[in-house]
Nucleic acid binder design. Structure first.
Lengths: 204, 204
DNA sequence: TTTTATATACATACATGATTGTATATAATC
DNA sequence: GATTATATACAATCATGTATGTATATAAAA
């Protein structure tokens, strides 16, 4: 086939990423061939190699397209805890975060692939490290919020902000991971808000 | 080479599993060829195919050799919470569990591979489901322990055993996952006992 | 107890299929 | 007319599974 216009080319690029997301999720990253992705996108490997240097680069593009908005959302949510009760702020932020994940199937699918259909070795090892960074930011911001809650007297006496921030962090990681990689037989999504509420209630 | 005695054969089998653990961890399951494993074990693919039908079966053997003792240990730990304070029982059980993981590099290495160097699709998908089962058992037993704590009056008023069991479960999953798949730059292992203590303290 | 037959524990050789990256062709856009 | 966005063709590699070879452990027969 022949040359396409710039907009058409960009659309093909997105089609390829879209197809990659599906096939990665179904077959796992390693077992997915570029031929497989190309076919799913309705193009040939030629188009794939034109837009991406190799499978890893395609994966990175897909991953960034999901990570960037989700992590931006998390940042946002943790910022607006200013005016109201900080504890409720954290609770709302967590609820909203998981609701966002629930309401965006594409983002969710990418993170599911990242959680249990990808091997973090060689070129993929850095992804694991990068994904860890937002988790650390989360930890810091939650600690700050707990400190503020302490100052305002809404935190139960005797609780250390750093310690309970770590606890919240582990809790959130566990939830996150099990929503993405847990077996789909048990549907946790219903219970998430209640779990978050109970988690925060322990601090009042 | 010629026939070996039964004990020698069992030893080569273990050597193969041992080599697989190392190479899987270094290269990821998908990128590891049986040739690679064979070479690392000092045998040929002939030996590997004699003992295992294929790579998946070898992986399962390795996985079971790590899972069985670790899950048995977890079962044990959650049983002996009878006599003493149930809350302290949970705390001790969690601490011991993570200490066990820390003290057994082979088990740890296998679980690290399972956490971030393996793709749970096709033949590997059932592993994810099976690993989930002990996690459910854990949830049930912790809830029972919390109920007992409530009856004995060591639990803070107003806490629901089921809710705080879910919280403990998510917390433990988060810890577990980050110890295995988190970036190794940050060394959490030191803080684990304190985190567990803080988690339980929230319930008193 | 020696002999013999067979199953065992591998090593080696082979055939096949799958994937990858690149090189080249092509037609439309800019 | 040069570049771009693809398709097609090609070469090389690699991993897999199986088939075959072989020497020895093991157990039954003599």
């Amino acid at each position: 086939m022949a040359r396409k216009t710039k907009e058409e080319a960009e659309r093909t690029r997105q089609q390829i990423i879209h197809a990659a997301r599906q096939v990665f999720h179904e077959c796992g990253v390693s077992r997915t061939s570029l031929e497989h992705i190309a076919k799913a996108a309705g193009v040939t490997r030629g188009a794939v190699y034109w837009h991406f240097a190799n499978k890893a680069e395609l994966f990175f593009a897909m991953q960034e397209q999901a990570s960037t908005p989700l992590m931006a959302r998390l940042d946002d949510l943790l910022l607006v805890e200013g005016s109201t009760d900080p504890l409720q702020g954290i609770e709302q932020a967590l609820k909203e975060f998981f609701r966002t994940l629930d309401e965006h199937p594409e983002i969710r699918q990418t993170f599911e692939t990242m959680a249990s259909r990808c091997e973090y070795v060689d070129e993929f090892a850095p992804v694991q490290v990068e994904v860890n960074k937002p988790a650390m930011d989360f930890l810091d911001k939650v600690e700050i919020a707990y400190r503020r809650a302490q100052e305002r007297g809404v935190l139960r006496a005797g609780l250390e902000p750093h310690a309970i921030a770590l606890d919240t962090w582990a809790f959130a990681c566990g939830l996150f991971h099990h929503l993405l990689a847990g077996c789909p037989e048990v549907d946790w999504r219903q219970q998430v808000p209640d779990m978050i509420a109970a988690h925060i209630a322990l601090r009042r």
